[in-house]
Amino acid sequence: MASVAESEFPLASRRRRRFTRQRIGRVLAPYALLAPAATAIGVILGYPLYLLVKMSFEKYGLFELIRHKGRWIGTANYAHILHDGEFWRVLARTVVFTAVTVTLTMVLGTAMALLLLQVSRWLRVAITTGLVLVWSVPVIVAVDIWRWMVDYEFGVANWTLTKLHIGNFIRHDWFANPWTGFGVITALIVWGAIPFITITVYAGLAQVPQELLEAAAIDGAKPWAVFREVTLPLLMPIFVILTSLSIIWDFQVFQQIWVMLDFRPTSDYYTMAIYAFHQSFQISEYGLGAAIAVVMVLFMFGATLVYLRQMLRTGEVQ
């Protein structure tokens, strides 16, 4: 009974390499296994992605939208955005924002995972449960909570900061200045992202063999040195992946800013995703919006090149 199933076990099939139905099965099996997922992605995303790229080479405004037909204008959309000072400002802002948010997320998330190792067991359970609570709050809800906490008139944040004598924050307007405004948004995003990072890193730490740590400690290494010399290299793959995913997620940040600023962020708050949305839905230049999206994807490919290469390399090894 030649089977497709058996070829999942490379060891078994390696034993008898014959030119039989087994071999054919072995060649076709992965494609059969991949087919459902690939079909789903291909059908649902493939055609829209093709439309998106096509749109980016077209004049596609409200007029064209209603008639379901764009007008080919070559690379004019790309030329337009690349010559637009606004685009470069938004790109720079998004890059800085992503860098700050991802760094804070990773550092604080890892620090909390290390802290989990140090606290008593009951507290570890409490903190993990707390993290799970935070994780389970939907993004939209999280934005509403934070918006409510920093509310200008009735926010608990202003009141508390004033009572703590950090300054007079009564009627402090966090969003009057884009720096403090982005501070609040960054806090919100980091707060929401920490549970995923902490729990993952903690689980990674749990897999670091104790013998290695003890050996290093016996050799007289300080805790920080142990972390740097032993733990960090072991956890490197996790860090690379978490960082790459965080970059992908934070670079596209939309909902948090959009809802926090009442669906009408002023242009100081534009990030790439909001800029693309603005050009598409608000200015009705869907072609421009599509071009911005394409540029965004290319940019992110560049930013996550390290991860990509590592992924492909491990792909080869195994």
């Binding site: 009974m1 030649a2 089977s3 497709v4 199933a5 058996e6 099965g25 099996a29 059969a32 296994l33 087919a35 459902p36 079909t39 789903a40 059908v43 649902i44």
Partner: peptide
């Protein structure tokens, strides 16, 4: 038999996708 199981599983999944999309 095992082959049939896997093929059937794959087919079922594909049908499910087809059903949801079409």
């Amino acid at each position: 038999m095992k082959a049939r199981f896997l093929v059937a599983a794959v087919l079922a999944a594909m049908l499910a996708v087809a059903a949801t999309t079409a």
